[in-house]
Design a protein around this nucleic acid. Structure first.
Lengths: 255, 255
DNA sequence: GGCGGCCGACGTACGGCGTACGTCGGCGTT
DNA sequence: AACGCCGACGTACGCCGTACGTCGGCCGCC
């Protein structure tokens, strides 16, 4: 009756891998496989060839090892990706907190954007319950620290961070899609627009959507200049920070 | 040499399907397949069983038709999803513009949130260049209209919309993931936390991340109450609108 | 009324994916 | 020197998207 789906294996196993609770296999000086080597190879593939190219077979191949050998160290692909994500978080800079909260939060946003630019696959892979690896927790703690002493309630601090990181992710995703669609189709954004435009005009009754046409063209030109996503990020970030400062000011005068 | 990847078929075909440039097949009173029937069936599957369950075989099955018959009307799965998306946009309400810009923009946000709640698969499917279907363009025009006369430049209008819709999407995604992870794993968010917590405590040195623990617990309790995502949406939306009103005010005084 | 051709529905088949499972060989231990 | 364990592996299964060739019935024409 109870449809008892397969949870992503038991938590214990996944967490143990994330936190590297495992003595280094002193046995066998052969291929010397390990979780770390596997994760490094996998990140390398995902970085350079995209998430779709990340295959268990491909990982084994990259390590000069049979496909199934990978499964000796990692329960499955989902768990591998989870460790990849946490590992990527581990590479992030740990800047000294300087400046006011706004400067610090802006720094957080830019660091996260840089992370996504370095590892675009994270934008597609993060879709699941957070993995609670050591580096994610450290990151969360560090980033919370930037808004810890400005008079917000705990849930508000979390919400502020969620808002900022959400904006970063949205912007990064938009930027990333432009890039890898160019790679996939071989067309730049401008070329794509030009090839679709005549057809669109065929369907669109002349002057049907004046606002959309005008603004779309304006925004489209920016995209063509590969500048659109960056602008959207900067504009949105300042709006978000402005919005946050309104609450902060409220709390300051009310407290 | 030129790596000429397969673009998603030629634009003409895809756009023709999106805009339904096709006489209704008067031929054959048989199964009476059509793009619309296929799209409706596909949306139905994705709504009720999730995007992973959306298979070409499954679509054919639902229509009492061979798998490959679907390909007579739709070039491939990617195009099918594109039409599904545009169709979903077509169902959105077209509210009369009332209230000030803030009220109108808030309305836009809530309508989009409702759309994502009705069709959670859109959150995972929209990842590609926009499909430029008729309903998307109409929606874009309509939503631009809500911020058309408040003194913003064209690119700013687009950026404002992008910001708001990005926030909606982030929030919707978070909420959706909670829901379908419960479905997949059979565990509520609270149960999941409880099963992981003991292990986490094992790894975490006591008191290592005080801020993260405290805030995480506070935010986690909200999640457990299935209220967290809604709170994050509301909080973030007001912040975003506050931030936008700052620019609007600037433009008003400067102009 | 007969017929030719077209076109929509279809079955088969291929390559690729994640991964369950049984095996085997070399190493550390006794 | 013999043993037993465990890490690496090969094979195989059930999915997926979809290319391609075929076949039968309906429409339009003579």
């Amino acid at each position: 009756m109870a449809s008892e789906r397969k949870a992503t294996a038991d938590p214990a196993r996944s967490l143990a891998i994330l936190w590297r609770t495992r003595e280094p296999t002193s046995r066998s000086a052969g291929p010397g496989l390990s979780v770390d080597r596997i994760v490094r190879a996998a990140i390398d593939i995902a970085d350079t060839e995209g998430l779709d190219a990340l295959t268990m077979r491909r990982v084994g191949e990259a390590l000069g090892v049979g496909t199934m050998s990978v499964y000796t160290y990692v329960p499955g692909k989902a768990e591998l990706v989870a460790v990849m994500i946490d590992t990527a978080y581990g590479e992030m800079p740990r800047p000294a907190a300087e400046g006011d909260w706004r400067a610090r939060l802006e720094r957080v946003a830019r660091d996260n954007l840089a992370l996504y630019q370095r590892h675009p696959w994270m934008l597609r892979a993060e879709t699941t319950r957070p993995v609670l690896g050591p580096h994610l927790i450290a990151k969360y703690d560090r980033e919370l620290g930037t808004v810890a002493d400005i008079g917000l309630a705990d849930v508000e601090m979390d919400a502020v961070l969620t808002l900022v990181l959400g904006h970063v992710k949205s912007s990064a995703r938009a930027a990333s899609e432009v890039v890898d669609l160019e790679r996939e189709t071989g067309l730049t954004d401008g070329q794509w627009w030009q090839s679709h435009a005549p057809w669109l005009e065929t369907f669109l009754t002349a002057g049907a959507y004046p606002t959309a046409s005008r603004v779309g063209t304006a925004a489209g030109q920016q995209h063509g200049a590969a500048y659109g996503p960056e602008y959207a990020f900067e504009f949105g970030l300042q709006r978000v920070l402005d919005g946050i400062s309104v609450v902060v000011a409220e709390r300051a005068t009310a407290g």
